[in-house]
C-alpha cells in the first residue's frame, strides 16, 4: 500500500514514537512535505515522491558557510563519514549540502517514522562531527 504525502502528514502530526519524538508535518504549495521532528527542530526534513520512491532531504548548510580552504577537507571527511550513516547519504544540491534518504513507496508508516527519526538524529551527529570546518 502506497501512502500519499497528505496521508503521511496527517498521521505524523498525530504520532509519538517510543523514544518520545513527535512530528510537525506541513504540506507546502510545491507538493513537498516539511517535517519537523521534535528531537531536532532546527533542521527540518523535506519529503518528496517519485514514481517509486519516497525521498527525505535535510539541507545542512551552504557551501559559503564552510571555512574557506576547508571545502576539500570537508568533502573528504563527509565521504569518510558516509559509511557510518548507512541509512542516510550526503549530497550536494546546487550549493547546499544535504543529508538524504530514500525509501520504496510501499514502505510502511512505522518504518517511515523510524527512518525520519533516525535521519533527524543523524543530522545532529553529522553536524557536530564537522562543526569545526564551518564558519
Amino acid at each position: 500500500m502506497t501512502i500519499t504525502l497528505e496521508e503521511l502528514a496527517f498521521r505524523l502530526n498525530d504520532h509519538v514514537t517510543d523514544e518520545g519524538t513527535s512530528f510537525d508535518a506541513l504540506l507546502m504549495d510545491n507538493g513537498v512535505l516539511e517535517v519537523v521532528c521534535s528531537n531536532n527542530d532546527e533542521f527540518p526534513l523535506h519529503l518528496a515522491q517519485t514514481d517509486t520512491q519516497l525521498l527525505a532531504v535535510t539541507p545542512l548548510f551552504n557551501v559559503s558557510e564552510v571555512i574557506p580552504n576547508e571545502v576539500d577537507n570537508l568533502n573528504k571527511v563527509l565521504l569518510q563519514l558516509a559509511p557510518a550513516v548507512p541509512l542516510s547519504a550526503f549530497g550536494l544540491q546546487d550549493d547546499t549540502y544535504i543529508l538524504f534518504g530514500a525509501m520504496a513507496l510501499g514502505t510502511s508508516f512505522e518504518i517511515i517514522v523510524h527512518e525520519l527519526e533516525v535521519q533527524a538524529e543523524n543530522t545532529i551527529d553529522v553536524l557536530e562531527a564537522i562543526q569545526s570546518l564551518l564558519a
Binding site: Q53, V57, D94, I98
Partner: peptide
Amino acid sequence: VKTIKEVQKATTSISDNVA
C-alpha cells in the same frame, strides 16, 4: 531524472529558508 528533480525541489524549498 525524477529523483534529481524531486531532490532539487525539496532542497530548494528549504534553501530559501536557509538563505
